[in-house]
Design a protein around this nucleic acid. Structure first.
Lengths: 127, 127
DNA sequence: CTGTATCCCCGTAGATACTG
DNA sequence: CAGTATCTACGGGGATACAG
């Protein structure tokens, strides 16, 4: 058994980290928050992510039970994503992480406008 | 500016995730916890990590202000690692993550012995 | 509109041997 | 004892084009 398999299956913290440990999943969770979003809306709000990667991440989050994917058989196609109970339960932890980082940042200050996930002017995520 | 530079410098959550988002850092933080540990003790307790990677991770955690590295100019050399206030403040969040994972795990059950960071029999981390 | 299919780059981390 | 030095392998993530 490979070590990162161990990581994913043996240890709760390891599982948790693999569920949200990617580059984009915490961001995606915060963007979806409590309302349903279509794939395109997500892509616009997190404009620095490629569609392929967004798809990949959403699929993994679906597998991990973080998001629900609802596909409507329409023309044009429509897909909506929302957080599961498990995904919602993650949000407070993410906020704690933000607070933790904000509290203990030492010298490197970043401009206020860059501190928000969504840039107000462009309505696009600056990540 | 590359995107993962954005990730690291613009967004508090991004910074937080890059500070603990690696494969090993949460594990290392939990192993060090509140008492000083020598390099070799860490290596034994997390026996599935290579020494090179352990060194790398500790260095990054030192840069991120999570751990303190104390080097004693002795023969044989001795180095002790401990958590900073920032590192200690991370622990409750890690415990929340564990609880979150434990609460919402659906079907895949793992044996109890694999659920603890430290395997009692071998005194080695199973991760 | 919501994705796939490719291809590629780069960083993480593993193995092994060596050093002060 | 506490690391470095190399080399290698793997996989995430990005760019772009295409598909249903």
């Amino acid at each position: 058994m490979k070590k990162n398999e161990l990581m994913k299956h043996s240890c709760p913290l390891g599982k948790a980290m693999s569920a949200l440990g990617s580059k984009w999943k915490p961001i995606i969770a915060l963007v979806i928050k409590d309302r349903k979003l279509r794939f395109g809306e997500l892509a616009v709000r997190i404009n620095v992510i490629s569609r392929k990667v967004l798809t990949d991440q959403l699929r993994e989050m679906e597998t991990d039970g973080l998001v629900v994917r609802e596909e409507f058989k329409e023309i044009p196609p429509r897909v909506e994503y929302s957080l599961t109970e498990k995904g919602l339960a993650l949000l407070p932890i993410l906020y704690m992480l933000e607070e933790w980082e904000a509290k203990y940042q030492n010298k490197e200050l970043y401009a206020e406008k860059d501190c928000n996930l969504l840039d107000k002017k462009s309505e696009k995520a600056v990540v």
